[in-house]
């Protein structure tokens, strides 16, 4: 959040949910605080790389797109994650594609033959005043004061990351600007009218661990085409012994469907098959520490895959844990998407 003077973006509209997320607040789990942070780490890190930020600079995380931002100052931005189209509407352009200053609509310019624009795809040039550019995900581009940035609904997958050079500014809680939907820590969800300034989380040139800048990166998280099954790699245990070989096989053999009650805490999977505990192992398990990617099996036999806002401890047995890359993929599942588990135990 920010004041009028320093703001770079004003939120005009959000889709179902838009949150600020960064690398999270690991290190507080013993106090009951989960690490939180970007649900799809690979896509989040790629967004920051595209705008030359530090790995953990705060970005926007959206669900099902639908985000409209008014641009108040020139900024370098990038959108990653689920494949989607970003549309930038520019109210007034000069022949070289740069914004006219001031950006108020030019009065009485009359019909024009349409501006020649230097960059981006022009969808429409309406009376010489409004140009519409489209940008795919995984590329950086510049927006100017007066532009409106619209993130459309992803063609597949669920979450997008909008990064700006410098990172989004917000007051940190326990060292992080992430919103934890389980405990409510961190900034509130984005709402129309919210103003955002940029922070100074740019990557220092030539610093140890710095990365070369890039204006395009390969998609970090592979999201399969619609109707193709998302395969999640699973490492067995620690509580697979409570389900025996039959339970483990049931988990791997079942065709799972992503449930609609899924969120940043966990993805609920559904099937006509249940992963049943062994008769001898139905007793209650004492609460134990949980991790992102843990596949917990409650008594109904329908697994829950924990994402970044998972509870720090839990009492249902964890039959297996996803690989880090598969946690990112699970964060892109939308309700109804088909899922299968693949055994990657060494």
């Amino acid at each position: 959040m920010s004041t009028e003077q320093s703001a770079v973006f004003e939120v005009l509209r959000t889709g179902p949910l838009a949150l600020l997320q960064d690398g999270g607040r690991a290190g507080h789990a013993h106090l009951g605080v989960t690490a939180s942070g970007a649900a799809d780490r690979g896509s989040f890190v790629a967004a920051n790389r595209l705008v030359g930020n530090q790995v953990g600079a705060a970005a926007l995380e959206t669900v099902f797109g639908g985000l409209d931002l008014r641009v108040l100052r020139t900024a370098l931005v990038a959108v990653t994650g689920a494949p989607a189209i970003v549309t930038v509407t520019r109210p007034a352009c000069d022949p070289f594609g740069l914004p006219a200053h001031p950006v108020a609509p030019l009065a009485g310019t009359g019909p024009s033959t349409g501006a020649v624009l230097a960059a981006g795809a022009v969808l429409a040039a309406e009376a010489g005043r409004t140009a519409v550019f489209t940008h795919p995900t995984d590329r950086s581009f510049v927006v100017f004061a007066g532009d409106t940035l619209h993130l459309g609904p992803p063609e597949r997958g669920l979450r997008n990351y909008v990064a700006v050079r410098g990172g989004f500014a917000a007051a940190p809680t326990l060292g992080s600007r992430s919103t934890d939907v389980l405990s409510g820590l961190g900034p509130p969800p984005l709402a129309a009218g919210a103003l955002f300034a940029t922070a100074r989380d740019t990557a220092a040139a030539h610093a140890p661990g710095s990365w070369p800048s890039a204006d395009f990166v390969r998609p970090a998280t592979r999201i399969p085409p619609a109707a193709e099954t998302m395969r999640l790699s699973l490492l067995r245990g620690p509580r697979d012994d409570r389900f025996g070989e039959a339970g483990w096989r049931a988990l791997l053999d079942a065709a799972w469907t992503t449930g609609s009650a899924s969120n940043r805490i966990g993805v609920r999977l559904e099937s006509s098959i249940a992963v049943a505990p062994l008769f001898a192992a139905t007793g209650e398990l004492p609460s134990e520490g949980m991790v992102a990617g843990a596949v917990q099996v409650p008594p109904n036999g329908q697994p829950v895959v924990f994402l970044r806002d998972h509870p720090v401890t839990g009492g249902y047995p964890v039959i297996g844990v996803l690989t880090e890359a598969s946690i990112d993929r699970a964060a892109q599942l939308r309700p109804g998407d088909p899922v299968r588990f693949v055994d990657r135990t060494e």
């Binding site: 290190g27 789990a29 013993h30 134990e288 520490g289 991790v291």
Partner: peptide, 17 residues
């Protein structure tokens, strides 16, 4: 090590990836 999480009869040791 990023997190040490005690529970009833376990200690979870979480490392950096």
């Amino acid at each position: 090590v990023v997190d040490l999480v005690p529970a009833e009869r376990t200690v979870l040791v979480v490392s950096h990836p």
